[in-house]
Each structure stands twice: as structure tokens, then as C-alpha cells.
Design a protein around this nucleic acid. Sequence first.
DNA 1: TATGCGATATTCT
DNA 2: GAATATCGCATAG
Length: 188
Amino acid sequence: MPVDTVELAQFLIGKLLVRELSGGRRIGRIVETEAYPPGDSSGHAFRGQTASNRSLFFEHGRAYVHFSYGTSILLNVTSEAAGTGASVLLRALEPLAGIRKMMRSRGTSRIVDLARGPGRITIAMRVDKRFDGADLCARGPLWLGTDSQQLMTIGATVRIGISREMNRKLRFYVCGSPFVSGPKKLPA
DNA sequence: TATGCGATATTCT
DNA sequence: GAATATCGCATAG
């Protein structure tokens, strides 16, 4: 797993997010990420370490779970060396397993809408703040798995929902995937 | 299909 | 008091 934030954001495209629950396993392929590198003024670590972004400063490969907009829980994968404060935001998944359970958690039967958007991922996968700081590299209740490599083109655009550093192309996605969030018109 | 707005936790000014 | 790494519903075209 790459240590560099931008490399990690691209590396994670196509990887699997696996959630082990007593009722069964839920799996989604990561199709969209955003990098928040060190020193990025739109990142949560920019103003230093606080009680709520503590896990953002862990070594790479851990979970940083944050509550945003009063309504949404967001899941990030930490990057860089311990003490740096950088991460990759997971923005969208393609549901692969446990789809019926995701539908029940999300309250919709449209597969493309189950995990298309960062706040939806955590609802579909039943991730909450208890996972803040958890190690995602080793098998556990929540971990990152690899899929057989398949041919996919990775596109890069500007990030969504921020007001600073808006011109940096740090959002990565699988070209042509209907499971990617945001505006539909994307460069192929 | 596109745009607008309310809900609502946490932090910063 | 304002801003924020958002979503879902409403309304209009």
C-alpha cells in the first residue's frame, strides 16, 4: 500500500472494501476517491491536530471516520507517515456482495444509488465512528481487499464540495462507471 | 434533468 | 455566528 497520498488515492481505485457482519459479508469495489495531501488547506489536518481529527495523524492504512454537515459520516484511509495528517476520502463503491443487506440499510432498491456518494458508503456498509482509527490493512470487521486486476481507465478531475484548492485534480474515478458520484458529464 | 433548500454536529472566527 | 470533504426531497423546466 503506497504511503504517498495521491498514489494511495489512485491505488485504491478498483480495490475492495470488505465489511464483516454477523449477518454476512458486504463487499464494494472502490470506484471513486479524493486525495487530501499534507498541507492542503481544504483538508481537516490543515489547522493542526485536535480531538476529533486525531486518527488522521496515524500511520497510513488506518480509518479516519468523520461526521460532516450534521448528517453524513465519511470514511477516509489515512496516508503518509505517522504525525503527518493526510488521507484519502472514499467517495463511491460498486456493490458486489451483500447487496440485499445494503438495500435494507439504505432504504432503496436502486443498486447504483447504494454507495454512490461518501455519506452513502458508510450507511450501506454500516460504518460509524467506532471504526475511527481502525487498521484497514489486516482482515477484521472492516478491511481493504484486492480484486483480480482488471482493465479500467482512471480519470482525474477537481474535487467536490470544497471551497479552497479548487483547481487541483485530486479526485480519481473509474471512467464510464455508473457507480461514480457527482455530475454525469465526465471525460471518458 | 437541473437547481434549491433544510437538517444538523463540530470547529473556527 | 459562519462554514463545512453531504443527502434527499421538492419544485420547475
